[in-house]
C-alpha cells in the first residue's frame, strides 16, 4: 500500500491508465522449454513481467533427513533479479519477502503434484523474476505450473494464479506495479481450475464481504483465459512437430 499523498488518479471513466477495464488482464504469453537442463521450464511475459520458471527432479532428497518415505518433498526458490526493477539495483540473495513467496508457491504445488508417486525424493521449483511489474508471484505460479506439466511429473490439475485488487471502490484484476503501489487492496489467489478450489490466498488492504465475493468470481472468470494460454504452451512443442509433417 502506498501513501495517500500524491496519489495519482488510477481510473478515469472506468478505464485504467493502460486502457484496461476493471476485469481485464494484461497480455500473457508463455514460451515452453526455455531451460534445456531442466526437466520442464517456461518463460512467461505477463504485461511487463518477465519470469522464468523451471522444475528439476524428482531426485534424491537432500539432506537425507528431509526425505519423506511416503512422498516427495517440494523445494521452491522465488527470487527477483537485482536488475528487475526500474528503480535502484536490488539486493542479491533471499529476503523475508522472497522466502515467504517461495513458501506459498511450494504449498500451491503440494496440493496438485502427485507426491505419493515418488517417496524419498525432492522436486525443485525455481521462479526467477527477470523483470517485475506487479503480480510476479501470480505470474510465477502460472509459469511454474506449465514447467511442472512439461516435466512429466503427474499432477491432478494445472493451477493458475492472478491477483485482484481495489482502486477506490472498484474491484479490479491483475494490477501492475503502479496500481499496486496506490491500491486500496491487493489479493493474489491461486486456483485449481477443475473444481475452482483456492490454493493460495493472501490479502491486505480493505474489502467488504461483497467485494471479496466479486473479486473471487472475477478471478475464476479470468482463469479460463489464463488456463488457455497455459494449455497452448504445454501443447506447443508437440503440436509444432505434428504440424510439420501434416503439410
Amino acid at each position: 500500500m502506498g501513501s495517500t499523498q500524491d496519489k495519482p488518479q488510477l481510473m478515469i471513466n472506468g478505464k485504467r491508465l493502460d486502457g484496461r477495464g476493471p476485469a481485464d488482464l494484461r497480455s500473457i504469453k508463455i514460451e515452453p522449454n526455455v531451460v534445456k537442463n531442466a526437466a520442464g521450464s517456461a518463460y512467461i511475459e505477463w504485461g511487463k513481467n518477465k519470469i522464468i520458471a523451471a522444475v528439476h527432479g524428482p531426485k534424491e532428497a537432500l539432506p537425507k533427513h528431509f526425505a519423506d518415505p511416503e512422498r516427495a518433498i517440494i523445494k521452491c526458490r522465488y527470487m527477483m533479479a537485482p536488475f528487475s526493477s526500474l528503480e535502484e539495483h536490488g539486493r542479491t540473495g533471499p529476503n523475508r519477502r522472497s522466502i515467504e513467496i517461495s513458501k506459498v508457491t511450494k504449498e500451491v504445488f503440494e496440493n496438485v503434484v502427485m507426491l505419493e508417486l515418488f517417496p524419498n525424493t525432492e522436486i525443485d521449483i525455481f521462479v526467477e523474476v527477470l523483470q517485475g511489474d506487479g503480480g510476479t508471484r501470480a505470474a510465477g505460479i502460472t509459469a511454474a505450473a506449465v514447467a511442472m506439466a512439461l516435466s512429466g511429473i503427474p499432477m491432478t490439475d494445472i493451477p493458475y494464479a492472478v491477483s485482484a485488487g481495489k482502486i477506490g471502490d472498484t474491484v479490479v484484476l491483475d494490477m501492475d506495479k503502479l496500481e499496486d503501489n496506490y491500491s486500496d487492496a491487493d489479493m493474489p489467489v491461486a486456483v485449481k481450475p477443475l473444481d475452482n478450489e483456492i490454493l493460495l490466498l493472501q490479502m491486505d488492504g480493505s474489502f467488504t464481504k461483497e467485494q471479496l465475493k466479486q473479486a473471487i468470481s472475477m478471478i475464476t472468470d479470468a482463469g479460463k483465459a489464463i488456463r488457455e494460454v497455459q494449455e497452448k504452451a504445454i501443447r506447443k512443442p508437440y503440436e509444432q512437430i505434428i504440424e510439420k509433417y501434416q503439410k
Binding site: K48, L130, Q131
Partner: peptide, 18 residues
C-alpha cells in the same frame, strides 16, 4: 535490450549455454 527496466541488458547464447 531484453530487460527494459535495466539501464542495459543482453542475452547471450553460446550453443546451449544461456
Amino acid at each position: 535490450g531484453v530487460i527494459e527496466n535495466a539501464e542495459g541488458s543482453a542475452m547471450a547464447l553460446f550453443g546451449n549455454t544461456k
